[in-house]
Amino acid sequence: MKVLIVEDDARVSSFLERGLKAEGYRPQVAHNASTGVLLAKALQKDVRENFESAVVILDVMLPDGSGLDVCQTLRAEGFSLPVLMLTALNSVEDRVAGLRMGADDYLGKPFAFDEILARLEALGRRVGNTAPKQARKNLEVADLKLDLEKMRLSRAGREIQLTAKELALVELLMSAPGRLFSRERILSNVWGVNEDPLTNVVDVYIRRLRAKIDLEGLPPLIHTQRGLGYRLESLKTSDS
């Protein structure tokens, strides 16, 4: 799915662009209202011609105008793609104003990256099973086992001592074996960080987990996809 990000804050737009790209989306960025309008119209034309899906993430406070006015103008001209308003103005009145101007959803700053993903999935969803998944008491990947009740990790029958953050990180990775987790998603889930803190904390903790889990003589389970993120799965060889 394509995502147009209309956001003037370079730090936020870069964080979203990199994170969404790592999650499999095709993001495009505009840093002002005028460019956003042009790209939004081009995006709708492309969607209609190629039968694709797309969502617009639109910041309210832009340097050359209001995102609310942008949304209202686009809707008046027949723009039909879903619009997610993103803003630091998050009072009830602000949310109501955004929805009345034609927004499909409204999310305040600071935001959790996972919530952005969930809202994009909801806006882009046309069909799909939304039944909740059944809870599991244990997670297993090859000979790596995590007891979620006791929060104990073991590999090949040997218990591994982890800190709270290390446990949270390994639980996230084991929750979807083989799935690529971007640094942005890991930061949001494990540290509750909603913007890139320009730190290598994720890489440091991945190295710690590797030292404890990927022991000599055992096949590696934690793998790196350079520039994108990390996955945990059982492979014969590692690409990291």
Rank of each mutant, 00 (worst) to 15 (best):
I222E: 00
T35H: 08
L99T: 04
G217E: 07
I116S: 00
L86H: 15
A103L: 13
A112H: 13
A54C: 12
E195H: 05
L218F: 13
L221S: 02
F15W: 15
E49Q: 15
L86Y: 15
L117T: 07
G192H: 06
R125G: 09
L39Q: 14
L62K: 07
L107T: 03
S91G: 11
L228N: 03
T87V: 12
N90V: 10
A135D: 14
E121R: 08
V60C: 10
K45T: 10
R183Y: 11
R226T: 14
D143G: 02
M101L: 09
L139P: 07
E7K: 11
K41H: 09
D64S: 10
A10R: 15
R26L: 15
L146F: 11
R231M: 14
G78K: 04
L198M: 13
A40C: 03
L218K: 11
L167W: 06
D64H: 04
T163A: 11
L43R: 05
I222V: 13
C71G: 03
L228A: 12
A33N: 06
S13P: 02
D203T: 11
V55I: 13
K212R: 12
R119N: 04
L162P: 02
L39W: 11
I186V: 13
L99Q: 06
L215D: 06
S240Q: 04
L167D: 00
Y205V: 03
P27F: 03
F51W: 12
V127T: 09
S66Y: 04
G128F: 00
F15L: 03
A103F: 00
T73V: 02
S34E: 15
K133G: 13
V190L: 05
D196T: 08
A168N: 14
V83G: 07
D9M: 09
F181T: 02
L162T: 02
E216K: 15
S240C: 07
N200T: 09
E17S: 14
T163E: 08
P177D: 10
V55T: 13
S188P: 08
E7F: 01
R125D: 07
L20A: 08
L84D: 05
I206G: 01
L81I: 00
L16Y: 09
A156G: 10
D114G: 12
R11Y: 11
P110T: 05
L215W: 02
M174D: 04
P132H: 12
T73K: 08
L153W: 05
C71S: 10
A164M: 09
T73L: 11
S238C: 13
L120D: 03
F15D: 08
E49V: 10
Y230Q: 01
A103N: 04
L144G: 04
M151P: 01
A168K: 15
M174E: 10
L153T: 03
S66I: 05
G102L: 03
K41C: 08
M151T: 09
L167P: 05
P177L: 09
A164Y: 03
L43Y: 05
V193L: 15
D196M: 06
T73D: 12
D46V: 02
R183N: 15
A142H: 13
D105T: 06
Q44A: 12
S238V: 11
N138R: 14
L162W: 05
G36Q: 00
Q44Y: 05
D69Q: 15
V201E: 14
A156N: 12
D9E: 14
E195P: 03
K236C: 03
R136P: 01
S91L: 06
L180P: 04
